[in-house]
Simulated scan of single mutants.
Amino acid sequence: MKCFVMMPFGGSGEYDKGERESRIIYSKIIEPAVKDALGKGAIVQVESAKNEAGSITSSIIRSISEADLCIVDITGRNANVFLELGVRFALKRRTTILMHQQTSDLPFDITAYRSFKYDALDQDLYRKQLAKFISESIDAKRTTDSLVFDVLEDHSEYHAKTTTSARVMPWEDYFSRLDRMRILLSEAITDGRYRPNAIIGISNGGAMFADLLAMKSVYTGVVGNLWADRTKHDGSSMFEHSFNNGVLEGLTNQMREIPLEPEEVRILLVDDMVASSITYNAAKKFLSSKLPDAHVRFLPFCYADKEKLEKVRGNLLWFHSGFRLDDDAVHSIHLTEFEKFPYEKPVRSA
């Protein structure tokens, strides 16, 4: 099942602790509660609304229309969250779950609808209670929980159609995933749990990912790019050429100018996807041969099926002690049903 979460970003005072509280509510209460209620295979996507009233994208509307379940946190009465709730009410008869903190009330218009009250400070308790609330809502015999369908009895429910364009990842989805990874990395750097000395992308897609990952984050280290010669299909010498030797020499010189914290060299190797893992393994081997004392972690942007995780598990960033995400959390970040990136490159499953 698919669940779409609509909630404030937290930058406009909706939550007492701002953006950090928004991330905690999602990661510690909402997402695990959905997994508890729907099963570990449930796909959970979040849209954190900012303070730009009326800013709702085609990707958000598509996600709202395709979701089997929508969870809407109306704490702080964020304008965009209410706009998205209205879209959901108009498109789907059920199941839409309203939630809000105990210190806030429902607007008069929707007080007749069940809502889940929670306290962000007691995350374990309200995760369990929300999971129970979700299960009860799905099993409820009520034909609708939509204000629109309650009033307009002949109103028809929207059913999404699969189109060719839907197979291409929208830029909104790309940047939503990027933001999640950037936030996790920034928090780890700020807290001193993990700080890379260099972020290195693999070829074009990886280079863009590396550059965007470093932008608007607290990372201040070196960013570079290795070129993969994909004519060498076995991967044995895919990175062994003068261009990469020069790049690595330049990156090493730059890293020497930056005090190492910790003293070991930590390299975060990134690419836009995991397919056969030949490129990833070749890049890791090349870096190990040139920088034998470096600790290399890997971060892909996405993958097309869960089995791909096993190909990179040993060096995946999220399994570092500074993060320790479980498999389900990793899948929620990286697993995609889209067949192509926004820049038309295939997300290969082979």
Results as ranks from 00 to 15, higher is better:
residue 117 K to C: 08
residue 66 E to W: 03
residue 108 F to H: 11
residue 78 N to R: 10
residue 21 E to R: 05
residue 133 F to L: 13
residue 35 K to Q: 07
residue 88 R to H: 05
residue 125 L to D: 06
residue 40 K to A: 15
residue 91 L to P: 03
residue 44 V to G: 05
residue 124 D to Q: 13
residue 47 E to A: 10
residue 89 F to D: 09
residue 96 T to E: 06
residue 20 R to V: 15
residue 87 V to Y: 07
residue 80 N to Y: 00
residue 49 A to E: 12
residue 11 G to L: 13
residue 19 E to T: 11
residue 99 M to D: 08
residue 98 L to V: 14
residue 119 D to Y: 01
residue 48 S to R: 15
residue 92 K to V: 01
residue 76 G to R: 01
residue 79 A to F: 06
residue 143 T to M: 03
residue 142 R to I: 09
residue 23 R to L: 08
residue 117 K to H: 04
residue 69 L to D: 03
residue 63 S to D: 12
residue 24 I to D: 15
residue 122 D to W: 13
residue 52 E to H: 13
residue 128 K to Q: 12
residue 48 S to C: 13
residue 123 Q to P: 01
residue 39 G to F: 00
residue 33 A to W: 04
residue 95 T to K: 13
residue 78 N to G: 02
residue 83 L to H: 08
residue 59 S to A: 11
residue 145 D to I: 01
residue 96 T to Q: 07
residue 45 Q to A: 15
residue 16 D to G: 11
residue 38 L to A: 02
residue 73 D to E: 01
residue 147 L to H: 00
residue 40 K to R: 11
residue 68 D to E: 09
residue 21 E to N: 00
residue 56 I to E: 07
residue 93 R to Q: 07
residue 131 A to W: 10
residue 14 E to Y: 09
residue 61 I to F: 12
residue 66 E to T: 05
residue 19 E to A: 11
residue 13 G to W: 03
residue 31 E to F: 04
residue 57 T to Y: 09
residue 107 P to Q: 02
residue 80 N to A: 02
residue 98 L to P: 11
residue 101 Q to D: 12
residue 69 L to S: 02
residue 129 Q to K: 14
residue 146 S to L: 03
residue 131 A to T: 05
residue 40 K to T: 10
residue 144 T to N: 04
residue 13 G to L: 06
residue 119 D to A: 01
residue 146 S to P: 10
residue 123 Q to K: 06
residue 127 R to L: 08
residue 76 G to C: 05
residue 46 V to W: 05
residue 89 F to N: 10
residue 80 N to K: 02
residue 117 K to Q: 15
residue 22 S to R: 08
residue 111 T to F: 14
residue 14 E to S: 10
residue 140 A to N: 11
residue 15 Y to K: 08
residue 122 D to E: 15
residue 80 N to H: 11
residue 132 K to N: 08
residue 59 S to Y: 13
residue 89 F to M: 14
residue 71 I to W: 05
residue 87 V to S: 04
residue 89 F to W: 09
residue 17 K to L: 11
residue 53 A to K: 15
residue 43 I to W: 12
residue 13 G to F: 14
residue 67 A to V: 00
residue 36 D to H: 00
residue 143 T to S: 12
residue 83 L to G: 15
residue 81 V to N: 04
residue 132 K to F: 08
residue 42 A to F: 03
residue 32 P to N: 05
residue 23 R to M: 05
residue 38 L to C: 05
residue 52 E to R: 05
residue 114 R to N: 11
residue 22 S to N: 09
residue 74 I to A: 00
residue 37 A to V: 04
residue 17 K to D: 15
residue 127 R to M: 10
residue 64 I to E: 10
residue 82 F to A: 12
residue 61 I to P: 06
residue 94 R to E: 09
residue 83 L to F: 14
residue 77 R to E: 12
